[in-house]
Amino acid sequence: MALIELRGVSKIYRVGEEEIRALDNVDLDIQEGEFISIIGPSGSGKSTLMHILGCLDSPTHGTIQLDGTMIQNATAVQLAGIRNRKIGFVFQFFNLLPKLNVLQNVELPMVYAGVATRERRDHAMKALKLVELENRSRHRPLQLSGGQQQRVAIARALVNNPKIIFADEPTGNLDSHTGEAILELFHRLSQEGRTIALVTHDPEIAAVTPRRIEIRDGKIARQVDAKLAGLDRIRPAAPAVPPAQ
């Protein structure tokens, strides 16, 4: 059974008389350990898909199964718990709390999970070690560079050992060099066996993942799976450079 299974998921907004189908009857499976990208132009519905996958939003129709439980009808409290323990978010604008230092930011998900103080510290330091920022734990986010801030955000996403990490345009606010470093980090995490979903509008970034899902007008327009195509055997380590058009 896949880690995430979407069946016939639709999200419909009503603006006056008009019906807007942000997602239209989407079926999608994500296996454990996969590294995928969800790609599409703005307004295509990729953000809505990510919000539904990330349990920030509920679908209008359809069923979602996450890690063995059906969650399409979960209450707000249950969704908060799932977000806390099974999902990690990385955002375009880092979204660190400026008043807390790096360590406290990374600890925050564990605060809501009810982890004891000392254990919290240990886990947070481990996560920071993973992104190689353990020596910046007492800094404020604004004292760090953009790339470092994004790495702190990744550490925060990792700290509760989630089933899947969603990264929404994680390089969108970084220069290309630091962006590459971040993608490299994701790649490394993926090789360690973590499930990661990148959401982006940029095909070049999407190219680093073995599997790519293209969303257009609320539907899955195209899926490319390097594994199925056998392409991963040609290029085992996916390059940060996109294939020539």
Binding site: V77, A80, R83, F89, N95, P109, A113
Partner: peptide
Amino acid sequence: IRKAIGATNAA
């Protein structure tokens, strides 16, 4: 942000 990383409404 707090909600996204798992804060409940009650929290």
